[in-house]
Write a protein that binds this DNA or RNA. Sequence first.
DNA 1: TCCTACATGTAAGGCGTTACATGATTTA
DNA 2: TAAATCATGTAACGCCTTACATGTAGGA
Lengths: 188, 188
Amino acid sequence: MSLKHALLGLLSEGEATGYDLTKMFELSMSHYWHAGHSQIYPLLDDMEKQGLIVFEHVVQKDKPNKKVYRLTLPGRAALIAWLKVEPPPSRHKDESLLKVRFFENLPLQDAIALLRARRCSHQATLDNFRKLEATYFPEGPDTKRSGLGNLYAHFTLRRGILYEQDSIRWCRWAITQLRRRVRESRGV
Amino acid sequence: MSLKHALLGLLSEGEATGYDLTKMFELSMSHYWHAGHSQIYPLLDDMEKQGLIVFEHVVQKDKPNKKVYRLTLPGRAALIAWLKVEPPPSRHKDESLLKVRFFENLPLQDAIALLRARRCSHQATLDNFRKLEATYFPEGPDTKRSGLGNLYAHFTLRRGILYEQDSIRWCRWAITQLRRRVRESRGV
DNA sequence: TCCTACATGTAAGGCGTTACATGATTTA
DNA sequence: TAAATCATGTAACGCCTTACATGTAGGA
């Protein structure tokens, strides 16, 4: 149950509602975890029953009432125990790359077009990550001034940026390979 | 249903049993798709009923009998239709990176140890990929001699190699950042 | 003698997505 | 007037993992 621990982790940084937590996944964690609200709300219920978190009802005018959750001591202990174990390598699923595996079944030009589409998609994600970095970590990653506060959030964002850059480079390389084959088949 | 199309794709390269298909996922596709035999066998049944594939019973002595599947024309058409659409960016789940996000809850030395474990894990996967490359694509990716036969399989393997290299570089960078912080905290 | 490879299946349960359901306020 | 934001929940369905189940042959 990694999602449970992800929620404990987010709550270790401060109290939040289910709605807040859902947004955090979307905003800055999408390249390594994801969960929708329909998964989060029932799980928060369970975790509260297990004593890992507690909540406070906050009545609002002009906005719906909300439940603000925070960690308990057993919750923090569960988080730390989970953190200390390095998990087995994760199995990624990448439907776009899966398709590449079978591009033999397409004309070269279609394969090139699809690789270009993939490159654009990675470029868009990269642009988004760079904006996030400029907004939340304007001093750069290796500044001595920055405390440990958001250091690790920056580490994970950096990983996302490197991944997208690497993806784009690979797309470019693959497209180059295919274009050369197009030229060769024309030449012969 | 990407798994269905992945099976169609593998069968487009030649006939195979459910057992063969299971091994193909493990051997060379693990960085972009995965499925166990308990998922594959029932799905092959369905696909056969849908007319996408057909099988032939092969009776063997010394080994269990087997069902050898191959594509039908509708199966190939379904594969090609699926290939032509670029899917939305995939949501990866990476429990190890998720943990990094919450390393504030650990002492620096534990964080460094976990990043080292992650680096080793990526190194092991990289070594494995490189062996695969040396075995199946000894001429290198940009050889003019190689036909289109296994070109795309090589593309996806290259992507895996680049990903692992990039992961290792990121781990090293992150470890360097943390070690500097260790030194600084000692110096002060 | 034990493990691995070959080969195919089923069953239970957990995880995740999509859709349904409500409703006030602010912004375009 | 239409959409997005805030805010919480449920229900159905599908995907995926883990475990159960069986049996032979060959190598360490």
